[in-house]
Amino acid sequence: MATVVVTGAQGFLGRNLIATLSAVPDLEILSFDRGDDPETLPELAARADFVFHLAGVNRPQDPAEFIEGNVDVTRRLLEALRAAGRPVPVLISSSTQAALDNPYGVSKRQAEELVRAYGQETGAPVFVFRLPNVFGKWSRPAYNSVVATFCHRVAHGLPLEVHDPAREVSLVHVDDVVAEFIAAFRGSPQRGPDGEPTVPRVFTVTLGDLAERISRFPETRRTRETPDVGDDLSRRLYSMYLSYLPEDQFAYSLEIRRDPRGWLAEVLRSPALGQIFVSVTHPGIARGHHWHHTKTEKFLVVSGEAVVRFRPLDGREVIEYPVSGAEPRVVDIPPGYTHSITNTGATDLVTLFWASEPFDPGRPDTHALPV
């Protein structure tokens, strides 16, 4: 069994890394976080086979805390590893700001230099990741990244303040970061042109574009439009936005259309992906008895028993497909066939429907005709 030490275990990167490492078999994870006694570092170092050094500060009230949180902690950790007498590999999460001369960048650069010196002295492999803005679940708003701030404010119904919409930011997603951290642990990180380990997928976006994408998410509940998740960045932004919803707002209601047959509700719609809706149909009741020129549909019974019937417009023969929630199968509805679905069971029938285009009252392409 291998033993890894994760410093900054309760921070943004630490929590995401440990959540993934916890699924790795035969791996012991030892944690060190802010508030833990530094005197425990020698014990952790003596047991470590690999160290993920993720502890640090980036927005202290006193700039002097940059040195204490980023440099001094790194020095104590490396001294403990030297005292353990084994060349333990070390990975450190740094920042692209290490190339700058602001107090934060200087402190991160000094921490990098300490780690590189440790590697040269002991022969232990070291991995210095200079990360741009990292975003993803468990990121702290107004602390870790602008994405966290935007997502948190929009999820809580607060306005966004974008002082420079044209400013570009480079982003990496925490899942990609964790994947590269684990690749380094296994000895095969991807490396950039400078030979340093890197996270290859970087998203570049302006603050104005970022704010606009995130601001559109809440409205999708009202319109039932499928959230824009057609590209990797938007998909990850939507995931992160949901992670900041207040816990009493995870659920939302649908518009239910009720009649003597049961009820029907639209779930999602999209010009690109069509429309999804669900219905409850009482025993003995039929739905449909219409046909389409171009629109197509899929029927999936998830509970109950039914029969789907078809008849070509110019024919008399009725085609029947028995369906049941006990043995789910999808029935395609081609154009040019009038069709219906009838509840043949003793209980309510629950059916999931997909249509190739959202219903448009101005162009319904739905024409009544008994099967």
Score class of each variant (00 low, 15 high):
R258E: 15
I256S: 08
R222S: 14
A251T: 15
W263L: 11
M240W: 06
E196Y: 01
D228R: 06
D194T: 08
V267P: 05
W263M: 10
P271D: 05
S253E: 15
G195T: 01
P200D: 09
E212Y: 03
L273C: 10
D259P: 02
T223W: 08
R201N: 11
V267D: 04
T226Q: 14
E196R: 14
L242P: 07
D248E: 13
P246Q: 11
D232G: 11
T281D: 10
G195K: 00
P246I: 00
V278A: 05
E212M: 00
D228P: 08
D232V: 06
I276R: 09
G274A: 00
E266N: 10
Q275K: 09
Q249E: 15
I214R: 04
G262K: 11
T281K: 05
V205R: 02
E219M: 09
T281N: 07
I214E: 05
L237Q: 06
D232F: 04
S188F: 11
P193N: 09
E196F: 07
T281Y: 07
E266M: 10
D248S: 12
A211Q: 02
Y241H: 09
V229G: 12
D228L: 04
D209N: 06
V267R: 11
S253R: 09
L273D: 15
L210V: 01
F250W: 14
L210G: 00
R269C: 05
D232C: 02
E225W: 04
T226E: 12
E255C: 07
A265D: 02
L237R: 05
P246F: 03
R269G: 04
R186V: 05
F203P: 00
P218R: 01
D232R: 07
R186E: 14
S234K: 06
E255P: 05
D228Y: 11
S188I: 10
R261L: 01
R258A: 11
G230P: 05
Y238I: 05
G230W: 03
G195A: 13
V199M: 03
S243D: 11
T204V: 12
Y238H: 15
A251H: 13
I256E: 08
D232H: 08
R191W: 00
Y238K: 10
L273E: 15
R216D: 07
L237T: 05
F217Q: 12
L273N: 15
D232E: 14
T223N: 08
T204Q: 08
V280A: 14
P271S: 02
A272K: 15
S253Y: 03
R186C: 09
A272C: 09
P200E: 06
P193I: 06
P227E: 01
I214S: 01
F217D: 08
R236T: 03
I276S: 12
T226K: 14
D231K: 03
T204I: 03
V280D: 14
E247L: 09
R257F: 14
T226F: 14
T281Q: 09
L207H: 04
G274R: 01
R261H: 10
V278P: 02
F185N: 02
R213Y: 07
F203K: 00
